[in-house]
Nucleic acid binder design. Structure first.
Lengths: 148, 148
DNA sequence: TTAGGTGCAAATTCTTTGCACCCTG
DNA sequence: CAGGGTGCAAAGAATTTGCACCTAA
């Protein structure tokens, strides 16, 4: 598993603050689950988060993973990525970013683009409701899949 | 259920052609299931497609709906919309378009924007693979949810 | 006619829940 | 030490599969 060690400390600090603010306990399980998602760029699904954390913490149960992932999402500490016909995947990258999704294998890669982040949304959106944020999802075929 | 009668005939023609081309049989079930999705702008999930078609065709089974929806997707006749923590929803609108998703109730609205359709994607995408198409997903809170 | 398509029911897979015990604050 | 959090096991949903019959081409 690849990790972003650079930001991990900041992320953990933010995690602690947000939990404290929300009046939520800082349990060992929650920290490890958050670390697992925040430290991965593979957009893991619940099962894969479970596997990762379970190695270090063999008493961890699946349902705690589910409960915690949705909790972290509600707290805004992680986001979810829906790739069709796959289970929900979780994303610890909370900076504005966009996704490239391979329509063959489902791999999802992040990319950043100042230009896209600053897009103007059309006015018709206002008729639908209040826009909080947006993302671009590019569908295509990744290098690995087009090689084979 | 609201319908787009205007395009339905064209859509059915395209449906017939695509199936023929793919060497796939035009069964009553497939036509009705396609009609249900193509004629709805509610981005129905599999269960809701089943309910809709089942009214007219009481012998229809759920598994046929699942099989057919994914088949239609593979044929490019419909697309899927992933809204987290909800089941997959299906979209019969195959023209380029974008989505507004309400983060409270999960309602998904289509919107069109020439400006967004013509966006330039950043070069880094090329390192990931071949881009086929892209969409903008706006997250926010819809009118119904913000009123209450 | 015949290969692909369908319905049925059972199996899987994924996710959630109830409850008693545990641990953070 | 109090109330939220966790693990366990079982329930619940959603989706898929095997198989015998059916039907479009």
């Amino acid at each position: 598993m690849e990790t972003y060690n650079i930001n991990m400390e900041q992320k953990m600090t933010r995690f602690n603050e947000v939990c404290k603010n929300a009046g939520i306990k800082l349990t060992h399980q929650r920290m490890e689950i958050f670390k697992e998602v925040a430290g991965s760029k593979a957009h893991p699904d619940a099962e894969s988060v479970f596997r990762g954390v379970h190695e270090r913490m063999p008493t961890l149960s699946q349902d705690t993973v589910y409960r915690t992932l949705w909790l972290l999402k509600d707290l805004g500490l992680i986001t979810t990525v829906g790739v069709s016909r796959e289970r929900t995947r979780f994303d610890g990258n909370i900076h504005p970013h966009h996704h490239f999704v391979c329509s063959r294998c489902g791999s999802t890669y992040d990319f950043h683009s100042r230009e896209l982040d600053e897009l103007n949304l059309p006015d018709q959106i206002k008729d639908m409701g209040r826009a909080d944020d947006f993302q671009v999802t590019v569908k295509g075929v990744c290098k690995d899949c087009s090689d084979s």
